[in-house]
Design a protein around this nucleic acid. Structure first.
Lengths: 250, 250
DNA sequence: ACAGTACTCCGTACTATGTACAGAGTGCCA
DNA sequence: TGGCACTCTGTACATAGTACGGAGTACTGT
């Protein structure tokens, strides 16, 4: 989805390169930031599916094609949206604290970002968006890992590993919520409808572990995946896994 | 995307419930499995975006609307596709081996699955597809974790944690590849185009860590994220993180 | 045997979306 | 003051999912 078209144009837009701004023609009624802001509002409110050029234009009281005078296409608009929310990421200061606290804060900040902008879990961000927001975020997060004798490559590895985890667990959480809304069924209702049917076709003796564990997990998390629990559990494992690398220099 | 519509209908389809098969009307020219198979072939070859009802119909030499006599809609078709590929997952036998080997095998099997069916990383699988393939997969994978004194809930937690990791890292790998194909640029070409521009707008002094580490990581992985390296690194950390839970009973 | 009816198959058509194109108007620069 | 680069906008096209309805088919109860 992201990163289509001319990289030069995208980078000029991301960094608001003055030299790329045309000097002729009528005064524009909107700024780029207004377009990006409107797009983010739409996506925050109704998700990526609802993010259409027409919808953004409507929010800005203009015509769809006007959007294209600010942005080459939808893919570039997404890149700009991503960088904009990265720029506003809350960056908890944790200098001097132990590494577990610092990494927990980084994870927490990212988790909050995904909660505020659920669509962010959905956009592909390969060939990472190289805007000022993204770079600043990277700088801040690397700082949380610095000073433990890691090589530069390891620094990047550890951070990527952490962010991948937060991304994935946020994605799961958001998806669960989205499905619930889309279906307009609570998990209990869904199970009430699907459960009996499943019982008719599924023979527990064929899948002893699956039925036992599935039931136990379902009970424990009241009928569904529990995103908060998954996050807590995963983060604890993740930090334990990094300990051998980070506990050398305190 | 997935899990829309009537859960009862979906489950009946997933389990090929005989009692849900109509007894009247003309003999059908296609079986459900043919439809699913054709859909999987399309998605394997050209990705989820290319998976359209019209395309599946074409592959089966029939009309688009005929597909709808087999499947209520595209969402249900996706559920069926997911369960079908789960059913064919390679299940490496590892009974008796140490837990690290067993979990590595589970991860590897899933990784291979994602490589064979890249679209699988993209489909939302919340409110997990409860078909025979998915359950059999769950049963097999739980077995790899069983016998270390974990509670049922912990069993589920650990497995989910592992699968989330494999899913996320596969997703990153696939996305990187997809972008490369879509852009028709190699990473070197892309950087050649974007690099100089970036150098003009980005002041390295503002982001010392980011530029240093970014460059080091870029060099080490020859210009881009290296999915294989990310997977190896992540899996090692992941197993280290699970060790405190699993090393108690051998 | 025969009607009724619940199916399958499929052409048509509606809606939504990204975006190309072209025309009209506007304001900087030589 | 002309010219041209640019903005704004209406129209239009291609591609989706899928609702609808009609024609034909085969199982069911009489």
């Amino acid at each position: 989805m992201t990163n289509a078209g001319d990289p030069a144009r995208t980078i000029a837009l991301l960094w608001r390169d003055e030299s790329a701004i045309p000097r002729k023609g009528p005064r524009r009624a909107l700024t780029l930031d207004q377009v990006i802001g409107a797009a983010i509002e739409v996506a925050d409110a109704d998700g990526l599916d609802a993010l259409t050029i027409r919808r953004v234009a409507q929010a800005l009281n203009t015509s769809p094609m006007t959007i294209y005078t600010h942005v080459p296409g939808k893919a570039e608009l997404l890149d700009l949206m991503v960088d904009a929310v990265y720029a506003h990421l809350s960056r908890t200061a944790t200098t001097g604290q132990p590494w577990r606290a610092r990494l927990t804060a980084v994870a927490q900040d990212n988790r909050a970002l995904f909660q505020d902008h659920p669509w962010l879990t959905t956009v592909s961000t390969q060939r990472p968006v190289l805007g000022p927001g993204a770079i600043a975020k990277y700088e801040h997060e690397l700082a949380a890992l610095d000073g433990h004798g890691l090589t530069d490559v390891q620094l990047d590895d550890c951070l990527t590993y952490l962010l991948t985890f937060v991304h994935a667990s946020a994605r799961t959480a958001i998806e669960a919520q989205a499905v619930r809304q889309a279906t307009a069924l609570t998990d209990e209702q869904w199970w009430a409808s699907a459960g009996p049917l499943l019982a008719r076709v599924l023979n527990p003796a064929d899948y002893p572990l699956a039925t036992r564990v599935g039931e136990a997990a379902g009970q424990a998390h009241q009928g569904a995946y529990d995103p908060d629990h998954m996050y807590e559990f995963g983060l604890a494992r993740l930090l334990d896994g990094l300990a051998p690398l980070l506990d050398r220099t305190p």
